[in-house]
Amino acid sequence: MISLRDLTVRYGATTAVDSISVDLAPGKIYGLLGRNGSGKTSLLSVLSAYRKPSSGSVTIDGSDPFENRELMRDIVFVRDALDAVEGDRAGTLLDLHARMRPSWDAELAAKLVATFELDLRKRVGALSRGQRSSLGVVIGLASRAPLTILDEVYLGMDAAARTAFYREMLADYLEHPRTIILSTHLIQEVADLLEEVVIIDRGRLVVHEDTDTFRSRGVAVTGPADVVTVFAEGRTVLAEQSLGRTRQVTLYGGLDADDRERAESAGLTLTPVGIQDLFVHLTSPEHNLEAVR
């Protein structure tokens, strides 16, 4: 179990992670979702012992991972910058991981290298952005670490490479279940793979629940302005727009059967809100988060 307690990371006057408390059960695929600069990388850096929190704590099965030899060996953190010596050849980098990671799977690494058509003789600094990301994916998956953290690893990868990445990740997870945390803002692409979503915005936790529940939370209600207004009263409105006398509100919180019946008999149209749209609404700058929490 990964437990974050009042986790806070500050850079000078900026608070990147603001008192986040969350528990993550082992063996699941998590999506850490947030806009750029929402604090995802800072949070993951603490989790992977790359940095100390400013306050609060992270524990993994009760122990702090920071400078913890056993725990750090079992965590792989791949971030977009790829922590490698730029002058090293890609193959040299994989060899190092192979030697240092107790659970490294050389066969999987070779398969992924072939899938992504990586040239291992190339120097890390000479790889294109997409190839660099692919190399990160190879490291992240072939390490097969009990805690695998992939932070926006898809940068520069084209759609085909991303699809291959998702497919290989799921296939390997099915054979070797482990905790995978995938940070992304391309939610639509990965939503079906995630067991739970954790959404943070401006350093604060907005949502943590299973993906299917989250998916059914959003609903758009369309109809005559006054009817819509009455229906939306007392509910969490994420967004609204009007066209003439027609009004549409995006509600958060899910409707029960009674609500739906009431809406339909009042002549309102209910449409589901896609998971990506829901995320955008929840993290839009003008939205007041406290209403959701």
Binding site: A49, Y50, E67, N68, R69, M72, R73, D74, I75, V76, F77, D83, A84, V85, L93, L96, H97, M100, R101, A145
Partner: peptide, 9 residues
């Protein structure tokens, strides 16, 4: 950086 990335303290 490289060694912390492979899980060394």
């Amino acid at each position: 950086r490289q060694f912390v990335a492979v899980g060394v303290t």
